[in-house]
C-alpha cells in the first residue's frame, strides 16, 4: 500500500509566539521548528499501516528549502521518500496548497493520504477537506482510529466529533486527517537518522506544477490580543465565595 503524508513545518507547540516589536510579522528569532504535531501523528499512522501491509510512505511538504529538515525527521522515523515543493518563500493560501497537493497526488497515485487535521500555526483545519473535494475522494477527518481492509480497498475510521465518536467507512483511495489521540508518534532512532540521509528527497519548483498562484485569501494584519486583566488571589474558600458573589457569578 502506498501512503502519502503531507507535512507542514510549524513552531514547536510549547513556545509562546510573539509579534516583532514593529508588528510587521511573527518574531521568529526564538522559534524552534518541528513537524506540525498532527502531521507527526499522521506519519506515525502511515508507518504503522506500512508495517501491517507493506508498501511505501511518501512525505510531501510545500515550503522552503529549510523544510527539508522536517522531511528528514519524517524519513528518520521511517518514511521512505520525501518531496519538497519549493515555494521559494512565496505566500500561498489554502486553496493553492490543496491544488498543489492534488497535482502531486495525481502523479503519485497513493492508495491513501493521511495528514494532520490542522496546522498549529494558522489553525485553519481546511486543507484535507479541500483536497478531498478536489480529488472527489471520500474524507474521514479527525481520526481516532483507522482500520484498513486492503483486500476490499476500504477503511473504517472512528472520528472524534462534538457529540462523541462517529464511525464511517470509506472506499480507497481516501483522505484521512489525524486527531491527537490517533497514536503516540515514535522518536527517530539513531540508525533511523543515519538511514534518512540516504533516502531520496526530490525538490520540485512550485511554478512547474501549473497551478495558478494568485491567492484568494491574504493576510492584512497581525496583532496581539488584549491581555486579560490580572485577577486576585484569595486565601481560602470563604474568600473565594465572597468574590464570586461580588462578581455575581453564582446562579443562586
Amino acid at each position: 500500500m502506498k501512503i502519502l503524508v503531507p507535512v507542514k513545518r510549524t513552531q514547536d507547540p510549547y513556545v509562546k509566539v510573539r509579534l516583532k516589536p514593529d508588528g510587521s510579522g511573527i518574531d521568529t528569532s526564538n522559534i524552534k521548528y518541528a513537524i506540525n504535531t498532527f502531521d507527526e501523528i499522521a506519519v506515525e499512522e502511515a508507518l504503522r499501516k506500512k508495517e501491517e501491509f507493506g508498501g511505501e510512505v511518501v512525505v510531501v511538504s510545500v515550503g522552503t528549502q529549510e523544510w527539508t529538515e522536517q522531511i528528514r525527521v519524517a524519513l528518520a522515523m521511517g518514511a521512505d521518500r520525501g518531496i519538497l515543493v519549493d515555494t521559494g518563500g512565496k505566500y500561498i493560501d489554502h486553496v493553492i496548497l490543496a491544488k498543489v497537493l492534488a497535482k502531486i497526488i495525481e502523479e503519485e497515485k497513493p492508495d491513501l493520504v493521511i495528514m494532520g487535521k490542522q496546522a498549529i500555526d494558522d489553525d485553519a483545519n481546511q486543507v484535507g477537506q479541500i483536497l478531498a473535494g478536489l480529488l472527489d475522494w471520500p474524507q474521514a477527518t479527525f481520526a481516532y482510529k483507522v482500520e484498513v481492509n486492503l483486500q476490499d480497498r476500504k477503511a473504517k475510521v472512528i472520528r472524534e466529533v462534538d457529540g462523541g465518536l462517529e464511525t464511517v467507512e470509506v472506499d480507497l483511495p481516501a483522505i484521512i486527517t489525524a486527531d491527537l489521540r490517533l497514536n503516540q508518534p515514535r522518536y527517530a532512532s539513531l540508525p533511523g537518522i543515519m538511514r534518512a540521509r540516504q533516502k531520496p528527497l526530490k525538490t520540485i519548483k512550485i511554478e512547474e506544477l501549473g497551478v495558478d498562484l494568485t491567492p484568494y485569501v491574504t493576510i492584512e494584519k497581525l496583532e496581539t490580543p488584549p491581555p486579560r486583566k490580572a485577577g486576585v488571589k484569595v486565601k481560602d474558600v470563604d474568600e473565594l465565595i465572597e468574590k464570586l458573589k461580588e462578581k455575581k457569578a453564582l446562579p443562586f
Binding site: Q11, P13, I26, D121, T218, I219, E220, K221, E223
Partner: peptide, 15 residues
C-alpha cells in the same frame, strides 16, 4: 485567531 490564540490575524478574502 492563529497560533492557538496568541495572535489575531486579519484576513482579506477576494474569491
Amino acid at each position: 485567531l492563529v497560533y492557538a490564540g496568541d495572535i489575531i490575524s486579519t484576513l482579506k478574502i477576494k474569491s
